[in-house]
């Protein structure tokens, strides 16, 4: 329901802009919290040092936004280029590889609330939000199989582990979402 409330405020502001009426939400950020059921407002100022609209802009045309948004985790070194495909296994390959490898370690990097919906048997939960490759307690020599919801977050964890010296890593391509489709038809998709 949250998007309903927020989308309607957006609609209201658009009509006010068209009618040039009332006090538009320019220079003000409206914060809505459905759980507390309150609205707060904070001031948004024009930043004279803004890279786009500031006094000495560095962004003077459209840029590469994928690169701009590829910000590394705090403290992480510049990401080395790795060939993701080398680590990806389809759900079926992932299952077969684990079945043939009794010492395999299965790691789920989703958040607790997702773990509560469904999980793969034998997995250990290490949410990416608090993931620290140096304190996992995992053996760097162990074969580690990672998964998340659709395979993107577990690849990020995989890269972190690789940087921390782990070498035997595999990622579930398509995540538990595809696993439910291709391996375990009793598992719900969310």
């Amino acid at each position: 329901m949250l998007p309903g409330v927020v989308g309607l405020i957006q609609a209201t502001e658009i009509i006010k802009l068209i009618l040039e009426g009332g006090a538009p939400l320019i220079g003000r950020l409206l914060l809505y919290d459905a759980m507390k059921m309150n609205f707060k407002e904070v001031r948004v100022r024009k930043d004279p040092e803004c890279a786009l609209c500031g006094e000495h802009p560095s962004v003077t045309e459209l840029i590469d936004y994928k690169a701009f948004c590829d910000v590394p985790l705090p403290g992480a070194e510049l990401p080395e280029e790795i060939d993701e495909a080398e680590f990806e296994l389809s759900p079926r390959e992932f299952k077969d590889a684990m079945d043939q490898d009794p010492s395999a370690v299965l790691v789920d990097v989703r958040e607790t609330f997702e773990w509560d919906i469904c999980r793969i048997d034998g997995a250990q939960l290490m949410p990416l939000s608090s993931f620290d490759p140096t304190t996992t307690g995992l053996d760097p020599e162990a074969r580690i199989y990672l998964y998340c919801y659709k395979g993107k977050r577990s690849m990020l964890a995989l890269k972190e582990l690789k940087r921390a010296g782990f070498n035997k890593l595999k990622n579930l391509s398509g995540g538990i979402y595809l696993w439910a489709e291709e391996v375990d038809s009793d598992m719900p998709q969310y």
Binding site: E41, V42, R43, V44, R45, D47, P74
Partner: peptide, 14 residues
């Protein structure tokens, strides 16, 4: 951090 703003009452501490 750049993606976090801190407001004291209703204004940015920046």
């Amino acid at each position: 951090r750049n993606f976090i703003n801190v407001y004291l009452n209703d204004d940015d501490i920046r």
